[in-house]
Simulated scan of single mutants.
Amino acid sequence: MNIKIKNLYKKFRNREVLKNINYDFYEGYKYAIIGPNGSGKTMLLKALSGLIIPSQGSIYIDNKEMHKDFRFYESLGLIIETTKFYPNLTGYENLKLLASIRKKISDEHIIKTLKEINLLESKDQQVKKYSLGMIQRLAIGQAIMEEPKILLLDEPTIALDDDSRDMLFNILDQFKRKNKIIIVATNEKHDLKDKYDKFVLISDGEIKRSGDINDY
């Protein structure tokens, strides 16, 4: 499968936030979207997720056009900015509630996901008692639990300690081996070559450079 972006342009309140974006994403690769704050990284992920409608241009997933053939792609995992959970529900209850929308996974699969993100021992604890790192791990859990074909993650390592970062990238490696499309917006540049396959450098709403991560 692939995602094709053609001449994508988005304007908000007289401000151009995405300008003539053209790029193809393919399954089996981990992509790093790199750029300073305000460069357009999050807006690009919002466009790919269907959360914003382009002012001009098109996005195709498997040759079907977003906002024409479908509004939201049916197999997509997403972290955009801060993921909101119900604070008085437990971690398990929050994931179960989200899973009830599509009814694609069992309770046993939710437990498996909680174990994978190292929250099994805290599954019956109210989310309002979670640390920031635990909340971020729960956000990762909700994004991956249905094993989507596309993962869009906006700064997923925020508040994660070293062990949790390793957990995240192990999960991304598993998704890569299953031929998923993994797209991560990140400001972390120190270990890009160890974590990703491709890079897309965005500045001022435009793609300035892209290619293999070893060429970054």
Results as ranks from 00 to 15, higher is better:
F85V: 11
F85K: 06
M66Y: 11
M66H: 07
N63E: 15
L76D: 08
K41T: 05
Y29C: 07
T90S: 15
A99H: 12
D69W: 04
K30W: 03
I79G: 00
H109C: 11
P36M: 03
A32Y: 05
P36G: 02
R102S: 13
N118F: 14
G50R: 04
N88T: 11
K84C: 09
R102Q: 13
L78W: 13
M66I: 08
L98Q: 13
I59D: 01
K96I: 13
T90C: 10
I53S: 09
I117S: 06
L45K: 07
A47Q: 06
T82Q: 15
L97A: 05
E108I: 00
K64H: 02
G38V: 02
E27L: 05
I117V: 14
S106P: 03
I101L: 03
Q56T: 04
M43L: 04
E93N: 06
D69P: 01
F25G: 02
L44R: 09
I34N: 01
S55F: 09
N88C: 08
L97F: 15
G77V: 14
Y73T: 04
L120P: 08
Q125F: 15
A99I: 10
E74N: 04
K96V: 12
L119H: 04
K123S: 12
T42E: 06
Q125S: 15
S49N: 14
L45P: 07
K123I: 11
K84E: 14
E93V: 05
F72Y: 15
E27D: 11
I111L: 03
G35N: 08
Y92Q: 10
N118D: 14
K68C: 03
F25M: 07
S122G: 10
I110H: 01
T42N: 03
N94L: 14
L119Q: 01
Y86F: 15
L51C: 05
D124V: 11
Q125C: 15
Y92D: 05
K103D: 04
E27Y: 10
Q56E: 06
I34R: 06
E81V: 04
L120V: 13
K41Y: 05
I59F: 00
L76P: 07
L48H: 06
Y60C: 07
G77D: 13
S100C: 06
K112M: 04
Q125W: 14
F85W: 12
T83K: 10
K30Y: 03
H67C: 00
S49A: 14
P87A: 11
N118S: 12
E121F: 13
I111M: 01
E81M: 05
Y92V: 07
L98N: 14
K123W: 09
Y31L: 06
T82L: 14
I80K: 01
I34T: 09
E108A: 00
I111E: 00
S75P: 05
R71C: 11
Q125G: 12
L114Q: 02
L76Y: 10
I34S: 00
S122K: 13
S49T: 11
A32L: 03
Y60T: 08
R71E: 15
S122V: 09
D124E: 12
L78Y: 11
K64V: 05
N37K: 04
F25E: 09
L45N: 06
L51V: 11
I80A: 06
N37V: 00
P36K: 02
S49G: 14
P54R: 07
F72K: 08
K115I: 11
Y29Q: 12
S49L: 07
N37E: 01
N88S: 10
